[in-house]
């Protein structure tokens, strides 16, 4: 391991490391860029998964964090799309499936009320993400390994379909273009 990197990055006396208010939001913000950078480097799926698990946990306790400034939509989701676009195999492995599941679970838990006028853009980005998964998921209708991904995708369609008042159930999901 490169020990110098860590030494350069930390000092117990550094005000940056001593004046952060104590609560989840500021600490999550303090770590956000590091997490984003880690996903961008795309080193190993296990680490990408851990980063997403952390985001999901933060979301669980602080609903507004990932929604604020559209952090997840603008900074993390495009990276995850790229991650799946780069997979040059016919099938996803277990870790990659879990990455897709965790991302979809975060998206499913986003409170659309907070999104206001930008929710159409969020839907567009989710559609892009869905497309990056579709070449795996839609290939074999009977494949069980993608069942959770499919359930999540259906839930997302339902979520966006319910936005328009008076939508009939048959029209639900149209907003995602599927």
């Amino acid at each position: 391991m490169d020990t110098e990197d860590a030494s350069v990055n930390f000092s117990a006396e550094d005000p940056v490391n001593t004046v952060i208010p104590e609560s989840l939001g500021p600490i999550a913000w303090e770590f956000f860029e590091v997490i984003e950078f880690k996903i961008k480097k795309n080193e190993h799926p296990a680490l990408v998964l851990e980063c997403l698990k952390y985001m999901r946990n933060v979301q669980q306790y602080n609903q507004g964090f990932l929604v604020h400034e559209r952090r997840f939509e603008l900074k993390i989701l495009p990276l995850i799309c790229k991650f799946f676009q780069k997979v040059d195999r016919e099938n996803l492995n277990n870790l990659e499936i879990k990455i897709a599941e965790t991302t979809l679970s975060i998206l499913n838990n986003i409170d659309l009320e907070s999104y206001g006028a930008t929710r159409e853009e969020l839907a567009k980005r989710i559609r892009e993400f869905e497309e990056s998964l579709n070449r795996f998921v839609s290939k074999d209708e009977t494949a069980n390994e993608y069942s959770v991904i499919k359930i999540h995708l259906q839930e997302i369609k339902r979520k966006f379909g319910e936005e328009k008042a008076g939508d009939s159930p048959s029209n639900q999901g149209d907003k995602l273009g599927v």
Binding site: A6, N9, A28, Y61
Partner: peptide, 28 residues
């Protein structure tokens, strides 16, 4: 532990991320 997220050593990066995730409930 924060700088270790960016280290090349996968195990240390993993440990750090797990510690971070485990801290959420307590902080919240």
């Amino acid at each position: 532990v924060k700088p270790f997220i960016l280290q090349k050593d996968r195990h240390l990066a993993n440990y750090t991320l797990q510690i971070l995730t485990l801290s959420c409930r307590t902080l919240a």
